[in-house]
Structures are given as C-alpha cells and as structure tokens.
Write a protein that binds this DNA or RNA. Structure first.
Lengths: 214, 214, 214, 214
DNA sequence: AATGAATGAGCATTCATTCAT
DNA sequence: CATGAATGAATGCTCATTCAT
C-alpha cells in the first residue's frame, strides 16, 4: 500500500538529515537505519549503497537548483536583478533542501574526486561561469563597482550565500526571501550607511528578486 | 620518553595538512605516518591519539588567534576600525594557519559535541560576543547602518571571512592584507558604486587595519 | 499449500543449472529466482530452503543413477562387460543430468559433512564396493591385469568418468554412448597400439555396453 | 626476528589447506585466522584481501608447475617419454602443492572470470596446446593409437591426473612417482592384459619418466 | 502463487591503538 | 625513536529467510 518512491524519499530525507548533522564519513549506515526505524541491512532493499544515497540526495538537489537557476538566467534580467534573483533562489533552495545543501558544502570537494560524482565539479563549473558572467556584465554596464576583483567577488558571494545552510533552520523567524533581502542589502550596498538616501533600502520589490512571482 | 617538541611540531604540521585536505574522519593515522615517513604505530610515541593531534592543532591555532584578537579588542579602536582590524587579523591567521583554519571550519561543529573540545564552543561564544558588541556599538554610533539585523550581519561577516580558508593558498597572488582590503571594501561599501565620491575607495590605510604594523 | 510438482521440477531444473554454473555457495537464491522470473521470496512457497533444493536435485539424480546401476549389477554380466555397462550408464546419466552431476562433483564432498546429506557418503560407499568387486573379480578371472593396484584403478576409473561432466555438453558432437566407447577403449586397452590385431578395436558391441538396448 | 616472507608462507599454507578443504567461497577469513592462531583483522597486515591470498597460492603453484613442465617440454624427448615425464611431474606437483592443486581444480573455472585471474585461463591454454601437440606427434609417429580422438584423449589425461589431488595425501603409501607409474601403466597400456609379454610392465625406468634425475 | 518489505546473522575489511623488541 | 605484528571494535554490505498482503 506504500508505493516504493515515497518510501525512498522518506528514507533519503532521513539519511540527508543525518549526513548533514554528522558528516558523510562519520555517519554509519546503522545510524540512518536506526533513525528510520529499521535494521541496517534493510536499507539495502531500497538503495545499492551508502554512496548511492548521497548521490541521489545531491543530484536531486542540484537538478532542482539548476531548474531554478536556468529560469533566472534565461529571463534576460539586468546584472543587478540577476544577482538578486540568483541569491533569492539560492536561499529558497537552502530552505527546501537545507540538509542537501549542508552536505554539498561539507562533502562535495571530497566526493568530487570520484568519477561517480563528476557532476559535482561540472555543476561547480557552470555555477562559476554563470556568476562571473553576471559580474563582468555588471561591471561593464557600470552597475557594479569598477574596482572589483571579479574572481574574489565571485567567491565572496558564493560562499557568503551557501554557508548560510550551516546555520539556517527552516521555519525560523525569517523566511528565505527575507534573509535574501538582508544579505543582498549588505552585499550590494555594504554595511555602512550610504550618502544618498534611496539606496540604503535594498531591493525588496518582488518583481526583481524572483522570476517566479508565486 | 622525552619526545622533542620540534619533531612534534613537524608532525603536527604534516597531520594538519592531511586533515585539511581529506577531512579528519577520512584521514587515517597511517596516511599521516606515510607522509611523515614513518609507520603508523610510531606516531604514538609522540601523541596519545589521533584526537589529541587535532586537539593540539586546533588549540594552538585558537590560542594564537585570540592573542591577535585580544590585542585588537583592547586597542580601543572605533567600531569600523575594529572590524577592519579583526578581518585583517583573520586573513593573516588564515595565511599562517591555513590548514588549521580549514580543519576548524570543517570539523569544529562535529568535534564540539565532545567534552574535550568544549573550548571550541567557548571560543565560538567569545567570538560571537565580540562581534555583536562591535556591530551594536557601530550601529549606535551611526557608523553602521541602522537597519541591519545584527545577528544576521554577524553571521554574514563571520562566514564570509573564514570560508576563504577553503580556497586560499598562501604565497598566491594576493597577500592576506590585500584580500582583507578587498573583502572589507565589499562588506563595508557593497559591490555597487556609491553615490558620494569618497567612500568608493575602501579603507586601505594601514594604521587602521592592523594593530601590529609589522 | 498445494504446490504443483511440475512447477517444482521446472524450478529445480533452473536451480540446478545455476548451481552447476556458479557453484552452490556462490549462487544466491535471488539469482535462481531471477532466472525463474520471480522474486527471491517466492521460491519459499515451493521449497523450504536453498539447501532443500540441492538436496532434491542430488537425491533425484542419485535415485535414477542407482536404478540404472542396480540393473547392470543384477544382470550377471562378466567383469569386463559390467565395467563397460557401468561406464556407459554413467555417461548416459551425465547426458541426462549434466547439471546434477556437475553439482555432485563439486559439492558432494563439502555437503556430505552435514547429516542431511549422509546419503551422499552412503552412495559413495556402495559405488566403491561395486567397483572394487568387479575389478577384483576381473583380476581373479584374468580379464584384468594382475599387477593392478585395485584401489588406484578404482579411483582412476571413477574420476575419469565423472569429471567428464565438467566439460560435457548435451547435444554436442558425440553421443554419450560414443564417448563411453572412446573412454572404454582408452581405459581397457590403453592409448598405445596393441601388438595383437584384435584388441586395438575397442568393444563397441551394443549388447555388452548396456543392459537397456534402447 | 621472524622475517616477513616466512610468516607469509606459513599463513598462505594454512589458508591453502582451509580453502582446499572447504572451498574458497565457503571459507571465512575468520576460519583461516583461527587456524593460524590470530584474529581475522590481523591477516590484513600480511595480505590485501582474501582474494589476494588465493591469487598468491595459485600463481605460486602455477609458476612452479610451469618451471617443471617447460623443462620437460624443452628436453626434446619422444612423445611417449614426454607424456610419461609430464604425468610424473604432475604427480610430483600434486605431492608438493596438494592444497593448491585442489583449489585450482575446484575454483579456477569460477575465478578465471575475473580479470585478476586471467593467468588461469592462459595457463589452461598453454597446457592444452602442449598436450595436444604431444598427442598429435605421438599419433603421427605411430607411438599412440591412430584411432584416438585427440581432444577427448587430452581431456581424459588431463582430468585423470589432476583429479587425483582430491584424494591424494602426501606421505601416504605411494610416492608420487609410484602413483605416476601406475597411472601411466593404465593409461598407456590399458587395464586389460596385453598379448605381448613386455608391454604389460609400464615404463619404470627413471631416465624416461623424469628430466630431473634427482 | 507471488510480491514487497523487512529481518538478523554473518562476512570481508578498515583502522586506531598497543606493545615487545 | 622507530618497527613489526597484532588486537578488537566497528563498518558497509550480503543474503537466506519470513510474512502480511
């Protein structure tokens, strides 16, 4: 009566939570099974291996992430609006896939050395190209500061956003959109007061921070 | 039974490098021994356990870190200058203890659950209080924006700085001071151009970014 | 709870094939089920256990084998004719129960240690007594060489015949009777040419090599 | 004080004995360790894996075997003398490597499917070519019967000799040379009496049954 | 008759650690 | 100081078997 895919998803969700909390290596298959209320061996009815569990967790997450990103990148927005939309989308993904993001942060470098996880490096590459492109375009159009070290700025933005997964708890005080707004405000305008009145309030108009106006 | 402190330091340095590269759990004692040109068992002449190695690596690092931080905090600088000095000091520590910082980033959350590593949480707490204090003072004095969510800004700054250890390579193009300057520029003034002329040039005067002018 | 005997036979045949190909221990119940187009658990509707499958395969085979042997032994043939008939009968059994014979060859020594498979040792004992008797009688009557080490000759004959199951493929170039003839020729007369004309042509008269002239 | 290679040999000998008695798959690493008076994990100080144990057992055996065979094949003996020498050499190897031969018999077909054990198939091929060559030459020179099915005779000889490893016990009544003599007598001249006087006594002159006159 | 899901015992293997030499 | 050999606990995984449906 319980169709297989549902059970898989439940188990993967459990596994992701444990992986995120303890680290992939430090997590034993027995621990996951405990958490799922079954015996270690029983997990192997649903999954080939511990590795295939992280694999499915990470690839599912990345697929959803890129669906969102691609929509943003294809929307033809200006550089600033693209940055806003990408950051907002990222916080939404952190909200929806907190555990997966945390695993990705902690383990991807280590996992990417294995052929099976090549897609992690590829995603990383796509990610970098997308961000560098937006930043360069922004500088060219005068939307971003001309004195930026683009690569440094890229790393700054990338890390700044994703590390949030290590402390973010869904259902907390702030919605992902709210956090995105605050982060964008700091990143775009800095933490010191601006001379001109208007820019001190970061972009909170929904139309620019998201493609999906849901 | 008189292990020379020098050999210890060498071995710890080797261990730190491997821990940073592969992760603490994924690193075998044998791997460290290989790298040090000895057999696994021989390490136990110098150290009690693998755990005591990370312990020594992390505590040595934190001691040095706090020596620098305390000097900054005791110097009676203004909020902005304090932030500048703390960030610069942090990048200097990343430069000097890259491996230790990377280990700290990846493993501290996990390790801090054990009583032996309580000092990690304590350091974290001190760190948080220091930063929150500076930020609050800055907002009160009008040096930082009044609409900041202080806790969010704290996390933003903290993560922003330390994650750099995951990609920073000592002896690269940029000196730690240079990177600190760029980061501070983005954090303080944002990545979009400022309306008023002066603030677009970030604070690069040495006197304010560091207490130790060495 | 009325499993049809036909299905049982089909499944046993499938199982025997896999056991013979991969070895009993190396064969998983799942593999057999795959081959039979069902799930592993479903086999347990038909059989108590994996062990009971080999048991049934081997005992069925041995029953048929001894039916043939007993007929030969009871026919009152001379020693040479008895040897010929036994060898021919053996190759016929290899032809009909190739998989079972192969399993018997590979696993009987191992299985015979368990009480359940005592009949394997018993069969082995009967087999040995029958052969030793024929050989002794043959030597006494001058039909076989007087300088034979009877026990060695027994092992030689026994192994020589049964190992053929490891390479024999039913439906190949040679019929079991043809192979029996060739083997008997080598065993009885040797592989070097005989001085006297007649014996170089091995005994191929059907009447002596089999009791069942079918 | 116990140099490594010696211990290795001891352990391999123990392992070979257990493998031969129980079969490779059915043998647990614990069982081997028990027999060696150590814990299962300790074996891994000496060997990479259970597989590498069989590997070393079989390859060591095959190397020695081929050293003997090559000497025989290079000696330029006539077909009959070559057969005698090969068979005698084979029984000597059975005497010296009984366990390895038994393992080879039972497991080689199964193991040869793995790339690591390709040398098993290669050895098998060399073996076949050598035997077929001698038999063909013997038939051509009139030393062996013209009506032989060469391939069948090859299998007959091959199996006949090697299966002996399943019952042979070193230090028993018969020396390997003695057994070889008896087997050769049966194989060359058959188990029925010859018309001509002399050939009923098989070749027992040392000079022809062995290259190494030790 | 067969499925889907689970059990539980056992297995090969890893690894931090110990210790006599 | 370092080695060589071993320990023992834990780990990921396999597989025959069970059983409600």
């Amino acid at each position: 009566m319980t169709p297989s895919p549902e059970r898989r998803r439940e188990l993967l969700s459990t596994a992701a939570e444990v992986f995120a909390a303890q680290g992939y290596n430090a997590t034993t298959v027995r621990r996951i099974a405990d958490e799922a209320g079954m015996l270690a061996g029983s997990l192997y009815y649903h999954f080939d291996s511990k590795e295939s569990m992280v694999d499915e967790i990470l690839s599912t997450f990345l697929n959803e992430l890129w669906a969102g990103y691609d929509e943003v990148l294809a929307a033809g927005l200006g550089p600033r609006e693209t940055v806003e939309a990408l950051v907002t989308e990222s916080f939404r993904e952190i909200d929806r896939h907190r555990a997966a993001v945390a695993i990705y942060q902690k383990e991807s470098q280590h996992l990417a050395t294995q052929p099976r996880f090549r897609y992690l490096s590829e995603s990383q590459g796509r990610f970098e190209r997308a961000w560098l492109g937006v930043l360069e375009r922004g500088v060219a159009e005068g939307v971003f500061r001309a004195d930026l070290d683009i690569r440094l700025a890229y790393r700054f933005l990338r890390d700044t956003v994703w590390v949030a997964a290590s402390w973010y708890r869904p259902g907390g005080l702030h919605s992902p959109e709210e956090i995105a707004r605050q982060y964008l405000s700091m990143v775009l305008d800095g933490i010191t007061p601006r001379g001109d009145t208007d820019t001190s309030r970061p972009d909170t108009r929904h139309d620019t921070t998201t493609v999906r106006p849901s």
